[in-house]
Amino acid sequence: MKSIDRYMVRLIAVPLFSTLVIAAMLLVLDRMLRLFDFVATQGGPVSVVWRMLANLLPEYLGLGIPIGLLLGVLLAFRRLGTTSELDVLRGVGMSYGRLLRVPYMYAVTLAAVNLAIVGYVQPIARYYYEGLRFELRTGALGASIKVGEFTHFGDRMTLRIERSRDKGRELSGIFVHYDNPTGMSYSVTAAQGQFLATDDPNTIIFRLTDGTLVQSSPKFTVPRVLTFSAHDLPIPLPRSERFRVRGGRNLEFTLPELARLGHTAASEEQRASSRSEFHFRIVEVATMFLLPMLAVALGVPPKRSTSSLGVFFAVVLLVTYHKVNEYAASFGELGRVDPLVALWVPFVLFAGLVIWMFHTVAYVPGGQPIGALERVFAKAGSVIARWLPGRAREAAA
């Protein structure tokens, strides 16, 4: 029996981890392009993209782990069914319950991992991700000055640079306009310039060479014009706002925090919202214990069939149930339905469907939940196959 368990471990592991890696890579690649565009638009360093993706990875794992578990078990049992190994195992007295021992070992382990991710890691990572977005928008991550465009430092200084060479060390074609609090304004043009650090972290020096300075004030009848070969212009850096504390959204609360807010929040709306998010996460983790039975029910094909309809239907069913949970959670947040009812009633119905399908394939002689669907799709395919040649003949005529 131990050899059978080891065989099942290997059989499930390959599609499970392959699906998990592929799903994570696809989600990361999809978001990476948008993040590169966002960071480039905000003028931030490219390295922040990798930090943002790292903070999104727990969210992707929370979505990918259930699908990986489902497809890992389903494809393993489908292989057993199509190669007649399942018939041999059943013939030597191994029940479906016994064959589910290894899948449930995976389910328990991955459910614990997923609980840690959605309950603790993902909320913290989401907060850090929002913090990086905030810092990019406010320039706290060292947003660069865009060449050929007007850059505003607060509401008093405007800077424009025509050309930049040697990674920003040599600047040319410079224009600066500055209004100080006393009402005096300065307009400066210079052939070249260079930024220099100072002991004050809130101020930098812009060293200009070969330029002209125009100083104007209500006290002056005529603006003063000065030419210079070298001039140091102090630039006060704008003070960036502090990012909000964690918890601006329910997605940033851990499970214990959501449980506490569900009873002690100041408003009824916040209590309902916190309870809805808490039950949504718990239901998503609890669903993983149904996936091995769902995988067996849809993974074992009918006799003399190699159709992959069960794989497609299983993924559609799981994604649809996830969307139903999201819709129910939004209703619970609005307070229209108690979150306990909104989220656990669909779970009970889904569990009943899964248990019925598993009971049919495991204990009903000749029972095959996916068989009826395969017959419907086969009839639809034959109708389409007959219809297409007729349409081709009509088009030719």
Rank of each mutant, 00 (worst) to 15 (best):
I4Q: 11
L11F: 02
I12K: 03
A13N: 11
V14A: 13
I22N: 08
D30N: 09
T41R: 13
G44W: 06
G44Y: 06
S47T: 12
W50N: 13
W50L: 15
L53D: 11
N55I: 01
E59C: 04
G64C: 08
I65Q: 06
I65M: 06
L69E: 07
L71K: 04
L75I: 12
F77N: 12
L80A: 08
R90D: 07
G97K: 02
V102K: 00
Y104F: 06
M105W: 02
A107Q: 04
V108P: 04
T109E: 01
A111F: 04
N114Q: 12
Y120N: 13
Q122H: 11
A125H: 06
A125I: 05
Y129V: 01
R133D: 04
F134A: 10
F134H: 12
A140M: 09
A140H: 06
S144K: 14
V147L: 08
V147R: 09
G148W: 00
E149L: 08
F153D: 14
D155P: 01
R156E: 12
I161D: 05
I161P: 01
R169M: 11
V176Q: 02
Y178D: 14
G183F: 07
L196R: 14
D199P: 00
D200S: 08
D200T: 04
P201I: 07
T203G: 10
T212F: 05
V214P: 01
V214R: 11
S217D: 15
F220L: 14
T221N: 15
T227H: 09
H231Y: 15
P236F: 13
L237W: 11
P238C: 09
V245P: 01
R249A: 12
F253H: 11
T254S: 14
H263T: 15
T264P: 02
E268K: 08
S273H: 04
E277C: 03
F278H: 05
R281K: 09
R281A: 01
M293N: 03
L294W: 04
K303N: 10
R304H: 14
R304M: 09
S307E: 07
L309F: 12
L317E: 03
H322R: 15
N325T: 03
Y327Q: 10
A329C: 01
S330E: 15
F331L: 15
V337W: 11
D338H: 07
L340Y: 10
A342I: 03
V348T: 05
V348W: 02
L349R: 00
F350H: 01
F350I: 00
G352I: 00
I355E: 01
M357G: 02
T360I: 02
R375A: 10
F377N: 08
V383A: 13
A385Y: 09
R386K: 12
R386F: 04
R391I: 05
R393A: 15
R393T: 10
E394N: 10
